[in-house]
């Protein structure tokens, strides 16, 4: 048995119970919504489940690597880090896709049999497109979680990256006076109520030039995060596990991005609150009140964005 197969078998067997529990909860929730809706569904519950899966599975897959004691054994096993990274990525992906597919099949069977709906092609188009999107979201969040040295930091990174796109895109939309495209900004948004399902259902999957560029941009981000996940996993410094999460893709970048874009877009109204949040962010990052020069510099660099926020407002 190859080392990859051995490792994958081991982690897969350990996660079977988790898969069954997730599956039971997810299918029950999806069917509950379908039964209550009686008529057509906008796939709200199923899309929430998919977003939750993409967010929850990365910590469940990688939490063992966020404990120094575990890392000692796991990294000394006769299996390369690349293979470990791939095994956890695939195992998590199986969890996400199998659970999602089962929910989808259950709800589709219900619609076609109980409600005698015949025209269900768009469900399948939605299913295929949402699968691609979920792989993209999952890859980005696996990368985000992997940047952290603790589970808590990992979850914070996931949320900051998952929702961070909104503010970045709002900032650029205001800057360049763009009127559309917000829907695709947050990592989770395409799976939202007004997202992909409505577009597919209304047969309005017409790609504008902007839409194409957004798809290309997201595809690049997804692939970059996937590659980044493998590279950063390979380079994990075991001695840092449990310590401060000082990855360049973590707090160091996420706090300024969030703060600057929020200040530029909402700064006029909420600047004091945003600055407090920024400071709290750095305190969480450093696990204390002793901030470094680079932290103060990042806070100082926010001033032009604050001015920009006031300029746009008045």
């Amino acid at each position: 048995m190859t080392s990859f197969k051995a490792y994958f078998n081991y982690i897969f067997k350990r996660s079977i119970l988790r898969l069954l529990v997730t599956l039971a909860i997810a299918v029950t929730a999806t069917m509950w919504e379908a039964l209550l809706a009686k008529e057509d569904s906008n796939m709200q519950t199923i899309s929430i489940i998919l977003r939750l899966l993409c967010t929850v599975v990365p910590p469940l897959e990688l939490y063992t690597f966020k404990n120094r004691r575990n890392a000692d054994i796991l990294f000394s096993l006769p299996v390369s880090r690349k293979k470990q990274a791939l095994a956890h990525y695939l195992n998590g992906l199986i969890q996400v896709l199998v659970t999602y597919a089962c929910c989808f099949i259950a709800v589709t069977i219900y619609y076609s049999m109980a409600l005698k709906k015949e025209n269900l092609q768009y469900y399948f188009v939605y299913f295929l497109l949402s699968l691609i999107l979920s792989i993209l979201i999952y890859s980005v969040l696996m990368f985000a979680f992997n940047q952290a040295n603790t589970v808590v930091d990992g979850v914070i990174f996931e949320l900051l990256i998952g929702f961070g796109g909104i503010w970045v895109m709002v900032f650029f939309s205001v800057l360049f006076d763009l009127k559309s495209g917000f829907i695709y900004c947050s990592l989770y948004a395409p799976l939202g109520v007004d997202g992909l399902f409505q577009i597919v259902k209304n047969n309005s999957l017409v790609m504008t030039t902007g839409g194409v560029w957004l798809c290309v941009a997201w595809a690049i981000i997804g692939v970059a995060c996937l590659v980044g996940y493998f590279i950063t996993f390979e380079r994990i410094r075991a001695e840092k596990i449990g310590g401060i999460s000082d990855s360049i893709f973590g707090y160091k970048t996420l706090i300024p991005i969030w703060a600057y874009t929020l200040l530029a877009t909402l700064g006029g109204l909420l600047c004091v609150f945003i600055y407090i949040c920024m400071l709290v962010g750095y305190i969480i990052f450093r696990r204390g009140f002793k901030l470094t020069k680079s932290d103060y510099l990042a806070i100082l660099c926010s001033l032009p964005f604050l001015v920009l926020g006031f300029t746009w407002m008045y």
Binding site: R69, N70, D72, I73, P78, S80
Partner: peptide
């Protein structure tokens, strides 16, 4: 040591070993 075939011959028991 970073070759996985080499590590098949090595067993490391840290001061606080891993268990779930």
């Amino acid at each position: 040591v970073n070759d996985e075939n080499t590590r098949k011959d090595i067993f490391f028991l840290p001061d606080e070993p891993y268990y779930t």
